[in-house]
Amino acid sequence: MTTLLESDEHKSLREAVSAFARSHPRATGPAEARHFWQEAGKLGYIGVNLPEAYGGGGGGVTELSLVLEEMGAAGNPLLMMIVSPAICGTVIARFGTDEQKQSWLPGIADGTRLMAFGITEPDAGSNSHRITTTARRDGDTGDWILTGRKVFISGVDIADATLIVGRTEDARTGKLKPCLFIVPRDTPGFHRRQLDMELHATEKQFELTLDDVRLPADALVGDEDAGLLQLFAGLNPERVMTAAFAIGIGRYALARALDYARERTVWKTPIGAHQAIAHPLAQAHIELELARLMTQKAAHLYDAGDDMAAGEAANMAKYAAGEACVKAVDQAVHTLGGNGLTREFGLASLITAARVARIAPVSREMILNYVSHQTLGLPKSY
């Protein structure tokens, strides 16, 4: 499924990823997901957005979102694609030291190394300005010492390190500023607790505790005075990739429903011939296509370096894709009736997965706040 906005290279990439993803069974457990990840890495799909000098494909978020969408449409959406190459890989490629790039980017690109991303906190939620995880310098050694908590952090158990968002105190103003630190998985004082989730996913969710975690000076990514610039360099790709994740899931669910509606016959007529079945599926397809166009726009703006316009478009794309995904999955399950809730057809587990696209990494209500304030110029209520 291609659009007029795509180049011949993008169309070829989409076709190749689709063929690869469909040749693998749907991953239902961590081992299968890991195998799929490794195979995708060998083919260059995981690091398609990273610089060629570090083993990547030299593309951007446009290409990476295309890869994730096609994986999702084949039934294998990889949540860590949003995290490892899109957020962490992008931030390190843009702001990391030469040593950090050499150490992390080749492994992230070929899928042999994983990096998680820790920003969300129990009391801060979506408000990055209220992050309380703090980083202070040890005056004697120059080391960083991190203290704080994170929650709903994906894949920490399988990641080699987590890119943690902390805050340093500006001695001149007394204000806390966000900074990014690479925290290896087995660092002393870095503890994780798996959250008991109803959501069925191959990637687990964790609460993190940083108890005076000591890091060398070179664990800092970028400039400690850069503020929000470095943080949002990773968050905009995260929104674009979440949109692609949602569109892929929506397309997968819709395809299963269409197959069923063509084949399931009641009173000698396929149920897809009835408008009560056909029209909602057509509407789901239209909404997924509209969301995809917005996602492509956001990706192109980000890759062109227009961070401000990309931020607006990425939020809109994430909103549109989340809504379209939930509706597509709901209609697919409804089309199959009781069969939509059986393991045989594999749609029931998508009901909760689709909700994730509405909730994370930022809720639809916070996106509406962003658009009303930043785009429409309306006053804040908070």
Rank of each mutant, 00 (worst) to 15 (best):
H200P: 14
D196P: 08
R214H: 15
D170F: 02
A159W: 14
I182C: 02
K175S: 08
V183W: 08
V165F: 03
D211I: 05
L210K: 02
K177Q: 15
Q194N: 11
A217L: 13
P184I: 00
E207M: 08
A201I: 00
L163N: 06
D218R: 00
F206N: 04
G222W: 04
E198T: 05
F206Q: 05
L180C: 03
K204T: 12
K204Y: 12
R185L: 01
D186P: 01
L220R: 06
F190N: 13
L180N: 02
L215T: 06
T168V: 12
L195A: 11
C179G: 10
I158Q: 09
V213N: 13
R192H: 07
V165R: 04
L180V: 01
T209K: 00
E198M: 08
E169G: 00
T187K: 03
R193G: 12
P216C: 05
A161L: 04
A217V: 12
P178W: 00
K177V: 15
L220S: 13
T209A: 09
Q205E: 15
K175R: 05
Q194T: 12
T162S: 06
E198K: 07
F190Q: 10
L220I: 13
R192E: 14
L208F: 11
T173N: 05
G174A: 05
F181L: 10
R167Y: 12
K177I: 15
R167G: 13
L195Q: 12
I164K: 01
D212L: 01
A219T: 13
A201W: 04
L180R: 01
I182P: 06
A161N: 07
V213C: 08
A159V: 11
L199A: 04
E169T: 11
I182T: 09
F190T: 09
L195C: 02
A201F: 03
R192F: 10
G222M: 07
G174T: 01
G174P: 08
R192I: 09
V165H: 09
K177M: 15
D160P: 02
R185M: 04
A161W: 05
K177A: 15
V183L: 07
L220H: 12
T162N: 08
L208A: 11
D170L: 00
R185K: 11
V213Y: 06
V213Q: 09
G166D: 06
L208D: 12
D218V: 01
Q205L: 15
L210E: 01
C179K: 08
E207L: 03
L176I: 07
E198F: 08
M197V: 14
E224Y: 03
D223Q: 00
D218N: 10
D218M: 02
P188T: 02
L210Q: 04
